[in-house]
Write a protein that binds this DNA or RNA. Sequence first.
RNA 1: GCCCGAAUGGUGGAAUUGGUAGACACGAGGGACUUAAAAUCCCUUGGCAGCAAUGCUGUACGGGUUCGAGUCCCGUUUCGGGCACCA
Length: 960
Amino acid sequence: MDYNFQEIEARWRKEWAEMKTYHVEADASKPKYYVLNMFPYPSGAGLHVGHPLGYIASDIYARYKRLKGYNVLNPMGYDAYGLPAEQYAIQTGQHPEVTTNANIARYREQLDKIGFSFDWDREVRTCAPDYYKWTQWAFQKMFNSFFCNACQSARPIEELTEHFEKHGTKGIQAACSEELSFSAEEWKAMTPKEQSDVLMNYRLAFMGETMVNWCPELGTVLANDEVVNGVSERGGYPVEQKKMRQWCLRVSAYSQRLLDGLDTIQWSESIKETQRNWIGRSEGTEMRFQVKGRDEHFTIFTTRADTIFGVTFMVLAPESELVGQLTTEEQREEVEAYVKYVKGRTERERMIDHKVTGVFSGSYAINPFTGEEIPVWISEYVLSGYGTGAIMAVPAHDSRDYAFARHFNLPVIPLIEGADVSEESFDAKEGIVMNSPAEGVETLAGFSLNGLTVKEAIAATKKFVTEQKLGRVKVNYRLRDAIFSRQRYWGEPFPVYYKNGVPTMVPEECLPVMLPEVADFKPTKTGEPPLGNAQVWAWDEANRCIVDKALIDEKTVFPLELFTMPGFAGSSAYYLRYMDPHNDAALISEEAAGYWKSVDLYVGGSEHATGHLIYSRFWNKFLFDLGVSKSEEPFQRLVNQGMIQGWSSFVHRVKNTNKYVSFDLLEERLSDDKKTKQYFYEGTETDPIHADISLVSGNVLNVEGMRQWRPEFSDAEFVLNVEGQYIVSQAVEKMSKSKYNVVNPDDICEKYGADTLRLYEMFLGPVEQSKPWDVAGIDGCFRFLKKAWSLFDKALEAPAAEPTKDNLKTLHKLIKKVSEDIEAFSYNTSVPAFMVAVGELQQQKCQSREVLATFAILLAPFCPHFAEEVWHRLGHDTSVCDAQWPEWNEEYMKESAVTLGVQFNGKVRFSMDFPVDATSPQMQEMAKAAPEAQKYLDGMQIVKIVAVPGRIVNFVVRPA
RNA sequence: GCCCGAAUGGUGGAAUUGGUAGACACGAGGGACUUAAAAUCCCUUGGCAGCAAUGCUGUACGGGUUCGAGUCCCGUUUCGGGCACCA
């Protein structure tokens, strides 16, 4: 009987669904294991072969763990809110929900063909009201919390108001946007609006007037991780800086915990490093500088306090509030012009050219150590969002300060012995300090750093600054608060209304606040976000319901928030919801949270390193503080699957013609910058144009198909080579619809079956690595399954037999290899092990039902349909999923004989055969053979015996 | 510029973590079966020399440690990834 994968796979697909084979419930009698994939955004293009890579890898792990006796949670869902559906809606008027549901249906159909062990009863969709209810709920909890710096934990906001009423801000240690100072009396005297504004300064979800990344093209603000190289990640549109009122999450409050947590989880070093970079902890000193001739001072942040004697100017960020205060009348006009110039530059312009620009403020600061006067400048190279927005410039030891000093002719004072600062600054934190102070300069309390190493000098300065109360030691983080509102339609609405200008939460019992219907998905004519188009979008406080906007009276009926939440809102805690997806009383029950705790294995792309994976950790830590999540970290082990790239094919069109020339007729030249290759035909340059890979076999183009494919090719001229063929050029690129290089998993399932697809994707290379999809190699995997099938087929037709020694040896070698490989996520090496094992069993004419059944269990994680089929043909009536993973036994694997050799100088050798067993007489013999060998090696001593089981034994010898 | 990571046949990639380099697969070549093709099976396949046994050489390049290095150390080159006026 042939391997009829289509029939087998269809049957088991149906069976598993009917039997709910993959349904899972919390079960205290079994250890749990939680496997999770990053849930997909269901795009209109459907799945390509790259998508399932991670799903297959994690599915293998989930199935393996289940066979090992774990209660495995392996859910799947959809990150359903997103920009493409909304943009499609704007173009076509089609409601995003309609397109999203259609896409989800398509995804589901594709996923179902690949044989995953997902528990679909637990599916979540971020756009479902019973799901986003809990996104809104978490937001409200953040709104009603602040972060206590002393206990490093979120606390109810009431604790803060109580404290304000008793003591004002005195003794408050809370994460905030801005340090405030007021007394209890002042607090009590504030209007509700004023109190609300003060509390916004502390809430974990707060409304803040901040510089945001505004993308005019998309009509919305973007988070820092959504801006790449100064343009929007999606679409690549320019992004500018704009001050706007926005909802924000105080992610920065958790900086230290986010950093510390990294040491407790098994993630790749590179992702951890990326997150450490993004958090950007830097330990330094904040120092106060007096302004000359005025009773004012300002504070700077530096990590190089030791360079205080080399400060020759100060620099303020143009956006800094200090600019207004420190600009003198004479300089005002010039400064204002400069600030205006800086505002006019986009983020991208600033990034691309680091122009040295700046202007003198007119003021001088006093060096607190020496009393020297230092001019205060303003320049865009100082960022307002980091530190205090002001720096002390030490041109000798900072390259940016150096460039500025050279440009504006400011003095450069070297402070490190032997540092040559005539051409560039000396930035390294090493060497011996000098000129600190320079000879003859008197300093505060006679302070001197001369002769110390830089590290000692930094420590000494910190100590001195603290003692003399010139400032304080301070830790700064680069991590910014996340901007949490978007000016879009297709996202979670905020459960917030504006009561006389004060943002107020819709009562928890009334959640979710459902996304309203709108007539138009575009922003309103007055520039309001799309929700401004909703007619029924006001909150009736008395009746606790959403009502028509026309009823707004500012007494009991108030306008609702028009912003929606960003993409990361719904994806930040979805892994918790999977634990208890139908609970409508809580995000998750105590029992579910206590049992499943956190994700043991998380699989997804590394592109989320600074987005989702930070927000999720933050969100989870917050819920952990609330006691909802039972684990400080959401994802214990993270595996980043690589991308599967596609081989794109190109036809070459001669410039300004409709003539396409076979690739082998072109002449290759390097471009002027010698980085890219260009191809010429008879001296004229050609442009490579994507051709659909379905029209190419090998590297030969189906010219007729090409003509029919798209109208522009129908009357094109194709110049063929001498064999009458049109050769395309090929290159590896990201798999994408627009590059016509997409391989659809459906086609592979159709032609080879899901089991072959699964096996092949794993065989292609390490899961973590990006690699191109190579169509040719899949035959090898398909052949393997056919061979394995015939092995079972033949054995089942023959009478059953006891396992032979060789059978057991092959089997146990395989058990060991596969078990170890799965644990290590090294599937690409276990596939060959299966191939070898099948070859051996075939040769042994294995007829043992027992051996074959065990083989089926081992194969089950990789090729579940196949395994299930043969498992049943072997006479089992329960699913192979409920079998038990076998243990290997070293006994069976012992080699019967090895070759013993002595090697010295690569010349002297002898050999003998003996069974491998440390206690066997033959092994003892081998030990004796060591002195025996000495007679071959006169004057040598054997220092070490290296035995490789089944291989060779080397005696390591040295002159005695 | 700074911080990671990588480099092994024609190709994807193995190598028990310091112990026979190139598993397994693809591709290529040869053969069997077949009228033929597909499918299947067998053999060869890093390079050089040789009929052969075998020998020499070989893991980006140059050094080093070691009885022994793809693996460890130092330097160089190239390619990926991340961060980037973060004081």
